[in-house]
Write a protein that binds this DNA or RNA. Structure first.
Lengths: 216, 216
DNA sequence: TAATGTGAACATTTTCACAGCA
DNA sequence: TGCTGTGAAAATGTTCACATTA
């Protein structure tokens, strides 16, 4: 479909997705004191075949050692660098409803190098307050804030009706990556990367498999 | 990888994923009064090519009319039936922390045919209370509840350390589909379908694309 | 004409096979 | 021997081309 953007597009998005899985697995192994891992051990931990692991990694360089496999610590560093999560990155969260608040309370972002620097809402009772350690700004400040703080990644957790408006604004202000929690297919320019977190859809696919299991 | 389970496996999981996207799009169109749609209009709404739409749908039957395209209402019904979301389905939620509470407050589940019938937690201050309209039971009741109420789909929103234990329990009790919000690669039998909702991973892939965009 | 449904061509992804090395 | 890295083969998924129909 796309042929330009050679740098970005020659690596499959499936590979990039798996890199995030490898890095999480490696961090857990490191935490329990594992220093080296062979590709076939990923199969045991993740259910991903050793061939795929080696193919994925080989696209970014040679990280393995024939006798000792991959050095866990080194590979974490290398993959972090590839993904651009090797040093802390400021992101913003738009929408502080139930879900937004849950995301604020979630420790996983900080642990993996993402810092929610500011939150935005339309609700006067939240604006200018500090929620879970992060200051809440009015939506009217959104574009200025993005420009002044050079924000590149934003999380959208506003209701469906507002999501496209917010997306248009932040894209105009320079955001290049959007994590979208609203159940709407957002339209963004080709130059912006959009990732949807759609758990109702995931429930529906579960439903399909459960239903078709029964028939056998 | 898998060759058995012919019924389930001959339809690609990519197709099933897209069915959920079609159905959401159709519901939105129905809400604004659209009664018929041509396959090429999905391209405009969803960015999915008309060929893919027709191929996907044709695997389940002939839903289209050459002169009028697809009847929106009929197609919603047909796809709902295929996915098994045509009538309400009871599910349970395990873990009522920040995220669990947000999920409880989320209206999207009910709208799409999923009813959270019970919630489970280990925290005494929550047990036997009604939270967001749903009764919270102790984790010790989990397996009995699943068996007695014939629960087939469960949502796991417990901390990472507890997730695998919970997964093992519910699988033993007969759950066939798991929506997992914990940042752990759960191990489940082949006969159980596992879907992960992993937003940190999605943030990391965003980071990759944003970083590689800058280099051009 | 313009749409759906579908077999064939093309592209991508995964799996296999093996060279090179400790 | 048993591992990594990698080109080739197989499997899977997407796009194209067109027969059919209103």
């Amino acid at each position: 479909m796309r042929t330009k953007n050679s740098k970005t597009n020659k690596i499959s998005s499936l590979t990039i997705d798996r890199l995030t899985v490898y890095i999480r697995c490696l961090k857990r192994l490191k935490a329990v004191g594992v220093s080296h891992i062979f590709s076939h051990q990923f199969t045991k931990h993740l259910g991903i075949s050793a061939h795929v692991v080696r193919k994925d990694l080989s696209q970014f360089g040679q990280f393995g050692n024939i006798s000792t496999g991959y050095n866990v610590n080194e590979l974490i560093k290398s993959l972090s660098k590839i993904l651009g999560v090797d040093d802390n990155q400021n992101i913003i969260l738009i929408g502080v409803g139930n879900l937004g608040r849950a995301l604020l309370g979630y420790k996983g972002f900080e642990q993996d190098g993402f810092h929610i620097k500011a939150i935005f809402d339309i609700d006067d009772t939240k604006i200018n307050r500090v929620i879970a350690g992060v200051r809440c700004y009015p939506l009217t400040d959104l574009q200025d804030y993005i420009i002044q703080n050079n924000i590149k990644i934003a999380v959208i957790a506003v209701p469906a009706a507002a999501a496209q408006i917010v997306a248009d604004e932040i894209v105009k202000a320079g955001v290049k990556g959007i994590l979208n929690f609203s159940p709407i297919m957002l339209k963004v320019p080709e130059s912006v990367k959009l990732n949807d977190v759609d758990f109702v859809s995931k429930l529906e696919t579960l439903s399909y498999y459960v239903k078709n299991l029964k028939e056998e």
